[in-house]
Computed example of a mutant assay.
Amino acid sequence: MNDIVRSGAAASTQVMPNSGVAHMVIGRDTERERVFDAVADHFDGAPSGTVDVFVDDLAQVAVRNGVDSAVTFAERLIERFRGRASRIRIGCSIEGPAELLSRVGGSMDAVRAVDPDTMAAVERLSGDDPTTFGYVRRHWVEAKRGIETCDRNYPQSKQVHAALTEPETTPRTLGATLSGLVTLGALETWGDTVGPTRYDLTAYRPERTWAVGAALEAGVSEE
């Protein structure tokens, strides 16, 4: 029989002993630290590194309480349980606020999600242009950082590269990565230039970039 544990307004927790799962439903007006205290109860008596923490959808927190609140929730969760939990996984709907995906992603070790449209686009790039796909797979995080750091609206790849600190890419490999992100719908080029390609950073889509990263993390083959 399932054991149901209730802790006031904080949460209701359904414990399924045979499967080793405790499912907690958070109350709408629950204070953040009360939620963490309820989660911490499940660590009592458990050896370090044997408990996983999984948040179903952080986007719901953002919709209800704002992006700042959701980002703080994720950061505090990681701060409190990193080192104690075996894994901390935070789900976030791709349809959630783009700002949330962009801000909270920097605190994650990896990003995984399911977005069929983006997955299909990544698989097409892998088949049609495996060289560019390889650059995107290896350097999409650095390209994202360069785009978000660059203070120009319509830069060339070398100007995006110049905005990076200690980059692993070269201007050429970064340019190939940016080109791949254009193909994947995360970025656009600017006008019909005769010289080097310029990228329209005003049309940058951070939520699409995270979706691309999620598809890559999901294990699209490079072959």
Rank of each mutant, 00 (worst) to 15 (best):
I78W: 01
E79T: 07
R80T: 04
R80F: 02
R82H: 00
R87H: 06
I88V: 10
I88K: 08
I88D: 03
R89T: 13
I90Y: 05
S93N: 12
I94A: 13
E95P: 01
E95D: 15
E95F: 09
A98R: 11
L101T: 00
L101R: 07
R103A: 14
R103L: 14
V104D: 02
V104Q: 08
V111D: 00
R112Q: 10
T118Y: 02
V122D: 02
L125K: 14
S126H: 12
S126Y: 06
S126D: 00
G127Q: 14
D128F: 13
D129I: 04
Y135R: 14
Y135Q: 08
V136F: 13
H139N: 15
E142R: 13
E142M: 13
A143P: 10
I147W: 11
I147R: 09
E148K: 02
C150N: 07
R152T: 00
Y154G: 02
A162F: 09
T165R: 12
T169N: 10
T170S: 15
P171M: 08
P171K: 07
R172V: 14
R172K: 14
G175V: 02
T177Y: 10
T177N: 10
L184S: 08
L184M: 11
L184D: 03
L184A: 06
L187R: 04
L187E: 00
T189S: 09
T189V: 15
W190L: 00
D192W: 02
P196F: 01
R198L: 01
Y199G: 02
Y199N: 04
T202A: 13
A203I: 01
R205F: 04
P206A: 00
P206G: 03
E207N: 13
